[in-house]
Every structure is written in structure tokens, then in C-alpha cells.
Amino acid sequence: MRLLWVLLWLLSLSHLGVAQTRLPLEAASQRITFTEVVPADSFQRSELYTQTVQWLYDTYKSPHQALDILVHKRETGTLAIRGSFIPTIRQGRIMTTGRLLRYTLRLDLQEGYYTYTLTDYQLENPGAGTPLPLESLLYSSKGRKTQTALRQQYEQQVITHAQQLSESLKRQLSKRPDGEVGPW
């Protein structure tokens, strides 16, 4: 019985850590923005580009992760795509899928490092026909964070998805390319 209480207590502590996680907001635009400069010592831009293209092919396979290529400039090492995912939302005891959540991923590849930026998160809004910026769901008009279970779930799903993309990209870009990939 004592072990059960200890496990429940530890579980509640881990839940508190999740609830307190904050989405990064870009200061000027107040848009959700994940960005990082990652060292890639001893890699040339062309190697990073080849590995990034392979990562895009490997990562965006399923239909709900539709890949819209916005920019691909091999000579400058710039890639930008429009990706998406469907969050899993708990409503009471039922797990459902949320609305399609689109985002922009921009990659700037340079000799020895690269920068990735995830931003422009937008929820599919079937009734209105135009996407809804995620910030409008998560924050009131005065910029204060609203506190509902649904909003917290979307926030956590975005953080988890961004972390998974970042880790996956870092793993791929730490390897040497096997050769050219795709028609890009």
C-alpha cells in the first residue's frame, strides 16, 4: 500500500512538471517560435543539405503530416516546409484526435552549423474556412494564458512534437550522407 502512495505521489510530481512547461513566444510578434542554432562541426553545407532532404523524406510520410515545400535553395542551404500533425486530445475518459495543426519549419544550413525554426502554428478551422492561429486558442486577447484542460493538452502536444522533430533532425544531421537524395 505504501508503494502505491509513493508511485501516485511521483506521478503527480511528473504531471506538475508537464503543466508548467511554457511555449516559447517570439518577443516582437508574440508568435510561438522554437528555434535553435546547432553545431555541426566538420560538415559542409552540401552534406547538411543532403541529410536534411533525407530527413524530410523519412519524417513526412503519413498523409496527416503533409509536406508542402515552401523554399528549397541548395546553393544557399535554405529549406522551408509547411508540415502538420494531429494532436491526440483527452476529453474525459475518451481519447480523440484534435484538429489538424499546421506549422512552418525553416532550416538554414551553413558550414559547421545549422539553424532550425518552428513557427506559424495554425489550427484547421473547418467552420470558418481559414486557419486559426494557435496563439488565439492558448492566450486571451490581452496576452494572458488561458487555463483549460483542452488548451493545456494542445500546448503540451506542440512542445512534445517540437522536441521530437528537433531530436530526430539532430540525429539525422549528425550522420554523414550516403549520397544524393531525391530530385532536389
Score class of each variant (00 low, 15 high):
L25F: 09
Q147L: 11
P87T: 00
T146Q: 10
Y139P: 02
T50V: 09
S46W: 15
G83S: 07
R99H: 07
P39W: 13
L13R: 06
A128S: 14
T146F: 06
L67I: 12
K61P: 03
R151K: 08
W184V: 00
G179P: 13
L10T: 05
Q51A: 09
L13Q: 06
Q147N: 12
I32S: 00
T52F: 07
Q157Y: 01
T104P: 09
E75A: 09
L70V: 08
E124A: 10
P126W: 10
A28L: 15
S174V: 14
S141C: 10
T160G: 07
Q172T: 15
L48K: 01
I32C: 00
R171I: 09
E26P: 03
G127H: 10
V18H: 06
Q156M: 08
Q30F: 14
E155H: 03
K142W: 12
T117Y: 13
Q153L: 03
V37F: 13
Y103F: 07
P24M: 04
T115W: 14
I81D: 07
W184R: 05
R176E: 11
L4D: 01
L169W: 10
D58I: 14
I86L: 11
E180H: 09
L101V: 03
I159C: 12
K170N: 05
G112L: 14
L70Y: 13
S14Y: 14
E75G: 02
P183F: 02
W5A: 08
V158S: 01
E135W: 04
T97E: 10
G182R: 15
D120P: 05
R90T: 06
L56V: 11
F85T: 00
T35H: 14
L3K: 12
G92H: 08
I86R: 03
P133Y: 15
M95N: 04
F85L: 03
L100C: 05
W9I: 02
E111I: 06
L165I: 06
W5G: 12
I32H: 00
T88P: 09
D120S: 08
S14L: 06
E36C: 04
Q163Y: 04
I32Y: 00
L165E: 05
T76F: 10
L79I: 09
W9Y: 08
S14R: 08
Y116M: 02
S84W: 06
A128V: 15
V18Q: 05
A19D: 11
Y113N: 00
K145I: 03
Y113R: 03
L8M: 11
P131I: 05
W9D: 03
G98T: 03
W5Q: 14
Y60P: 02
I69D: 07
R151C: 05
T50F: 11
T119F: 15
K73C: 08
H64E: 11
R102A: 04
T96I: 10
F34C: 00
G83Q: 06
A66P: 11
L4M: 05
Q147K: 12
R176F: 13
K73P: 04
G98Q: 00
P24W: 09
K142R: 13
D41C: 12
L165F: 13
L13A: 02
F34E: 01
R74E: 02
Y114H: 04
R106D: 00
L11E: 03
Q110S: 06
D68E: 11
G77E: 12
